[in-house]
Each structure stands twice: as structure tokens, then as C-alpha cells.
Simulated assay, not measured.
Amino acid sequence: MKLRRSRASKRGRIEIIPMIDVMFFLLATFMLASLAMQRLDAVKINLPSGQAERLSEDRPLTMSIDPKNEIFIDHSLVRLDQVEGSIRRLLKADKNVVIAADDAAAQGAVVQAMLAARRGGAEHFLIAVHRE
């Protein structure tokens, strides 16, 4: 007499559909995370080329001057007469200001903005350049 097993042995199966769902979810998550790392709100300027050391990881106060000689302090448009007050309000303890002036910006506009920032309390100016 032959006895049958109470449980029939079955081979395990790997379901592929849930694994595809997980992979698409991970793909979408990494795509959104990489978009969040982009600086999409930056002022569009062409920096002059040069060699310079990298700054530390903390974000310093940035004053940008575009080709139309408009002044931006941390991506906010300000007039020349507002630069002093804005710098005084936003300046950090190290009193460093990064100047990111476009190649086509007038030298006089850059100097006037730097003088207004100096009156606002800035002590050290760092000039941003495009690394070669």
C-alpha cells in the first residue's frame, strides 16, 4: 500500500509584476530627488573663467549682477539704493559676500554694488568665477 503525502510539493515561484512595480517606484523617487538637488532658481549669468579654491559647504551671502546691471541678493532683485539695507539684514557672522558678476556687466555697476555692500557691513568680498 502506497501512502500519499498530505502536502503536495510545489516549486516556489518568483512573481515579477510586484518587482517591476518596486523598480518603477525607485526610478521615479531617484529622478525626483535628483531634480530637487538642481539649483533651478539661480540667476542666469556667465561667470568669467579663472582658478579658485572651492568654498566651504555653508552657503554664503551671494550678490549677483546680470548683463542688464540688475542686482540680485540671494536671488531677490534689489535696486542699488536697497543694497545696503538688504546686506545689513542678511549678512552672516563671517561678513563674507560672494560677488557673482556676469562677464557683460558694467564694471561701474559692480563697483557701486560692492561699495553699497561695504556700507551695509560686508568686510570681505569673494569673486565667483567659472572653474576651467
Rank of each mutant, 00 (worst) to 15 (best):
Phe25Trp: 03
Leu91Asn: 03
Ser49Lys: 09
Asp74Arg: 01
Ser9Glu: 12
Pro18His: 13
Ile65Glu: 08
Met37Pro: 04
Val78Cys: 10
Ser34Arg: 07
Met37Ala: 11
Val83Met: 00
Leu77Ala: 11
Ala101His: 01
Lys2Arg: 15
Leu27Ser: 13
His130Ser: 11
Asp21Gln: 08
Ala128Trp: 00
Thr62Met: 05
Arg7Lys: 11
Phe24Cys: 10
Ala100Leu: 03
Val110Phe: 08
Ser64Ile: 00
Ile45Thr: 13
Ile73Val: 11
Lys2Ile: 09
Ile45Glu: 04
Arg131Phe: 05
Asn46Ser: 04
Met31Glu: 00
Arg131Ser: 15
Ser86Lys: 06
Ile71Leu: 02
Leu35Met: 14
Ala42Gly: 04
Ser56Asp: 15
Val83Ile: 12
Asp66Ser: 08
Phe125Ser: 13
Asn96Gly: 03
Ser6His: 12
Arg54Lys: 04
Glu53Gln: 10
Ala33Lys: 07
Val97Gln: 02
Glu57His: 12
Ala93Arg: 11
Leu35Pro: 05
Ile127Gln: 12
Ala100Cys: 06
Leu126Gln: 09
Ser34His: 11
Leu80Pro: 11
Arg4Gly: 03
Gln38Phe: 03
Gly50Asn: 13
Arg118Lys: 15
Phe30Ala: 15
Glu57Asp: 14
Ile16Pro: 02
Asp41Pro: 01
His124Ala: 09
Phe125Glu: 07
Phe24Asp: 09
Met37Val: 13
Arg119Asp: 05
Val98Cys: 10
Lys68Arg: 15
Glu123Thr: 08
Arg88Met: 07
Leu55Cys: 11
Leu91Lys: 01
Ala113Thr: 06
Asn46Gln: 07
Leu80Ser: 15
Ala109Ser: 07
Ser9Tyr: 14
Gln38Ser: 07
Gly50Tyr: 00
Asp94Ala: 05
Arg89His: 14
Pro67His: 10
Glu84Phe: 10
His130Arg: 12
